[in-house]
Design a binder for these strands. Structure first.
Length: 491
RNA sequence: GGUCCCAUCGUCUAGUCUGGCCUAGGACACCAGGUUUUCAUCCUGGCAACAGGGGUUCGAAUCCCCUUGGGAUCACCA
């Protein structure tokens, strides 16, 4: 296990959709490994599926990576010495290996149609046995094969999987995993149009880019022996492997769109704090020790180790994610919290589009900081603090209709009017009023809160009054529906 | 069905490699109290797991075997 190769890891997405949560975590582990070992993290775009590629997907993947703070040293928009980093631009680099494979015989031409092979596969499965290959072409002489190929007969290049070979993969997470070549099929390495397939190209690229550690999802574990065979055929140095467990949905199956949001982008637009999501992704299949579950990316890099990635799949637990979000929000400094929340306030038309996270807004917003889980929740919570009069919800309306509320509100308004500003102790002022009226605090506070905020929950009233200011506070006390004594009965 | 992977509280996990310190620890969720004029926060306490069966051993969550259960994969997609 004396690995002297410099650490070079890669994340290799295909631009066929948004960045998946699972992909994001894989990228994160790669990044963390590189950053914690002084290695290089590179991005390789696997865009050989021309039909499904899109520039839009590429950009959204890059954006998601940046949002998560996973910066890459080589890749799109970051040149390195191992480019190009788009597989579509690397096609010419595969020619030599393909030619060599045909020459040496570990690639052979297969003239069977995809349809007829599908029939064979089906038959094999029905017979509860494993399909390996159609023997007709495996042993065709090279001369015959080349002749038919030259004559224009459509064919693919299959990898001639050797007989009776043990392929042992040393995986940093799973230990030694053994496969027998006798169970493997002669897989297609090159399509009729000359384009090589994933397993072939992946090995070629990883080798050309001198990838030292392949850290990827567990679903690739069964692909690995095929790739290992390519390294062996070409006499290339194999990378080390680490197959990380899958992220599962509530149903215990691989996280899919059916089980919830699977695109990182969805979490971004919904106002999840980055640090919380980053933290949470780490917690899925990784642990620092027996106690720590809240940590920063710097703290992660201090201790990151592939050995601490667990073997079993992890169910995506939104409860814990939300708890982490709230926790991270509470840890934020007020200015950055305000800045994070500002776009949502603008969106909700509570502040003007050119508003800034100034001191006034900060003091308003800060009283909600410990009461929200997502940035996007702020507008709904804080709406009552904007404008002259709030909207009164059902419970508030009911509270305002209770007996004697009108006189209570007038008395409080009077007391507020009489006090100095800013008020030293709103609570004490209200208490005095309550005593004068011979009422309990609750009886007074409830309608006052309803009048002031339009709802029965929320921040401390002293904060509310301070933020609203004397004028608006009094206006709300004096002009709420019941204070005007003309509110219609509950409908 | 073939191949491969996995198996500790409902969930994420520590402990497994290097058996004893484990009457199995932490966190989320849940329940009960407390703080708070309300809600939230916060604090305290509680509930709750080694899948089953065989071995090995003085001793097993930890090592071995079997069973069971779950998952991944089986494309001329990546």
């Amino acid at each position: 296990m004396t690995e002297s190769r410099p650490v070079r890891v890669r994340f290799a997405p295909s631009p066929t959709g948004m960045l998946h949560i699972g992909g994001a975590r894989t990228a994160l582990f790669n990044w963390a490994y590189a950053r914690s070992r002084g290695g290089t993290f590179l991005l390789r775009i696997e865009d050989t599926d021309i039909e499904r590629n899109s520039e839009e997907s590429l950009q959204s993947i890059l954006d998601s990576m940046r949002w998560l703070g996973l910066d890459w040293d080589e890749g799109p928009e970051a040149d390195g010495n191992y480019g190009p980093y788009f597989q579509s631009q690397r096609v010419h680099t595969y020619q030599a290996a393909m030619a060599r494979g045909v020459e040496e015989g570990w690639l052979y031409r297969c003239f069977a149609s995809a349809e007829e092979l599908e029939v064979q596969r089906e038959a094999a499965r029905a017979a509860k046995t494993n399909w390996r290959f159609d023997p007709r072409f495996r042993d065709l002489s090279k001369q015959d094969a080349e002749a038919r190929h030259a004559a224009g007969e459509k064919n693919v290049l299959r990898f001639r999987v050797p007989e009776g070979e043990e392929i042992v993969i040393k995986d940093h997470i799973r230990g030694a995993v053994a496969f027998s070549s006798n169970d493997m099929e002669d897989w297609v390495a090159v399509r009729p149009n000359g384009m090589p397939t994933y397993n072939f190209v992946c090995a070629l690229d990883d080798s050309a880019m001198e990838i030292s550690h392949v850290i990827r999802g567990e679903e690739h574990l069964v692909n690995t022996p095929k790739q290992v065979l390519v390294y062996r055929a070409l006499g290339l140095a194999e990378p080390e492997y680490a197959h990380v467990p899958l992220i599962l949905g509530q149903d215990g199956k691989k996280l899919s769109k059916r089980t919830g949001d699977t695109a990182l982008g969805d979490y971004i637009t919904k106002g999840y704090p980055v640090d919380a999501l980053f933290n949470f992704l780490c917690l899925l299949g990784f642990s620092i020790d027996d106690k720590t579950d809240v940590f920063t990316r710097e703290e992660l890099l201090q201790v990151f180790d592939l050995k601490r990635i667990s073997k079993s799949g992890a169910i995506f637990d939104t409860d814990k994610l939300h708890w982490l979000c709230g926790d991270w929000i509470r840890r934020m400094a007020t200015p950055s919290f305000t800045a994070a929340v500002l776009p949502y306030l603008i969106d909700a038309d509570l502040v003007s589009p050119d508003a800034s996270a100034d001191a006034e807004l900060q003091s308003l917003v800060s009283v909600f900081q410990e009461r929200i889980t997502l940035f996007s929740e702020l507008p709904a919570q804080a709406a009552g603090m904007f404008g002259e009069l709030p909207e009164y919800d059902q419970k508030a309306q009911k509270a305002l209709q209770a007996e004697g509320v009108s006189s209570v509100l007038q008395a409080v308004a009077k007391a507020v009017d009489a006090s100095s500003w800013p008020m030293e102790d709103f609570s004490a002022t209200v208490k005095t009023v309550a005593e004068e009226l011979g009422l309990g605090m609750g009886k007074v506070m409830k309608p006052v809160r309803a009048a002031l905020t339009g709802t029965l929950g929320g921040p401390e009233l002293a904060d509310v009054v301070r933020i609203l200011g004397k004028k608006r506070s009094m206006k709300r006390l004096q002009e709420c529906p019941s204070a005007l004594e003309d509110s219609a009965p509950e409908g």
